[in-house]
């Protein structure tokens, strides 16, 4: 019974994570995961804060066509 509940909870967590990724809400968490596994690189010498990351991302996104007609 408990195992089934746990399995359901895992599915819900996966769906919620997918939904957050789709909406852009989880972008910083993805970045953090990458940072933790790779650390500093030449392009990213220091960890950006959530605010800095958000600003950098949206400035980059609206430089090229990102929304179709």
């Amino acid at each position: 019974m408990k195992t089934r509940r746990n399995a359901r909870w895992e599915i819900f967590k996966k769906l919620w994570w997918g939904f957050r990724q789709m909406s852009g809400d989880a972008a910083y968490d993805v970045y953090l995961r990458h940072w933790r596994s790779c650390g500093a690189t030449e392009e990213t010498p220091r960890l950006l804060t959530r605010g800095e990351f958000y600003l950098e991302r949206i400035q980059q996104r609206y430089r090229t066509p990102s929304r179709c007609c």
């Binding site: 789709m22 690189t41 950098e56 929304r67």
Partner: peptide, 27 residues
């Protein structure tokens, strides 16, 4: 080229949602 920003391996369902939201406009 994974960098956690532009190049991010993404679940195919999530990416399909992203891609659809980008291509579907008023047209």
């Amino acid at each position: 080229l994974e960098d956690g920003r532009d190049f991010v391996p993404t679940n195919k369902w999530v990416l399909m949602g992203h891609h659809f939201a980008a291509i579907a406009g008023p047209g």
